[in-house]
């Protein structure tokens, strides 16, 4: 009599499922990269816009008193961290657009009628794509900033920057993908992106420190997720990377580097748990 070991069969089945899921994810991610290669304007626009900001704002505030810019020797150096985060933030905020177009043009139905090993593959491929693009764009800003003489982080600093950007990009990408499933069409999604983008930037420490702001704006800036990403990156440009140092003198108290990253982590996990039931429902 031939018998089979159920645990071996189960192992084989889960290995197959993992293999199938990897096949789906790589195919869906490759599709997004083909789109980017053949239509690179969004990639270049995403790099160009912050670069223009860097050149113009750095010039505009070149005579700003250095005393107002904690830890920076010039406004351009101060601004660099803000624009790196802004670039990643904008890129991640747009993450939902390809998915929204897939919904509108019926391509999502093609994916949903396929026997996907996991429908999370659709979301994971978008996250991989947007994360790669956002990091590429941010790296381009870092490189330009370095060429303009605004400094380059140490290896430890580079690590802090990567972790910070990944946390921010995961959180905002999740939010954008969630919106892409909730909103009725791309017009509404683009409207939200337009409304959110610049106000969130201005209400952070990207362009000016909290001490420079009126009290009410200082409050908003000190709870703005962008601030918790900007300040560790600003610190990462300094010679000594020390996450125990207080980075934000918020109206509610002092926040050090570890706290900034913890807050970003909680934000990412929290958004994941908020959005997951929605994605499960829409992809069920």
């Amino acid at each position: 009599m031939i018998t089979t070991n159920p645990s071996i069969n189960k192992d084989k089945q889960s290995r197959n499922e993992l293999k199938e899921m990897l096949q789906e994810i790589s195919a869906l991610t490759w599709r997004l990269f083909i789109q980017l290669i053949r239509r690179p304007s969004t990639l270049f626009a995403g790099i160009l816009q912050p670069l223009i900001w860097l050149l113009l704002f750095a010039a505009l505030f070149s005579n700003a008193p250095i005393d107002f810019l904690p830890g920076s020797s010039s406004y351009g150096e101060f601004l660099g961290a803000g624009l790196i985060v802004f670039t990643a933030f904008s890129g991640a905020l747009n993450a939902g657009l390809p998915l929204m177009f897939d919904r509108e043009f019926g391509f999502l139905n093609r994916l949903l009628v396929a026997p996907l090993s996991s429908r999370s593959s659709i979301v994971i491929s978008s996250v991989i794509y947007i994360t790669t693009i956002s990091l590429l764009q941010s790296f381009a800003i870092m490189a330009t900033s370095a060429l303009l003489g605004y400094g380059w982080p140490s290896l430890g600093g580079f690590f802090v920057i990567a972790i910070t950007l990944l946390l921010l990009v995961f959180a905002i990408t999740g939010l954008s993908l969630g919106l892409a499933f909730v909103l009725p069409g791309h017009i509404e999604l683009i409207a939200i992106i337009f409304i959110a983008n610049l106000p969130v930037l201005f209400a952070s420490t990207a362009l000016a420190p909290i001490s420079f702001m009126p009290a009410w704006l200082g409050w908003i800036a000190s709870i703005n997720p962008l601030t918790f990403a900007i300040e560790p990156i600003r610190m990462a440009y300094h010679n000594s990377v020390d996450l125990t140092v207080v980075l934000i003198n918020a109206p509610y108290g002092e926040v050090n580097g570890y706290s900034c990253l913890t807050i970003l982590f909680i934000l990412t996990v929290g958004l994941f748990f908020i959005i997951r039931p929605l994605l499960n429902r829409k992809l069920a």
Partner: peptide, 12 residues
Amino acid sequence: RELLQLQGDLYH
């Protein structure tokens, strides 16, 4: 052809 290849991957 790329669309068919994608479809093939979605069906493993």
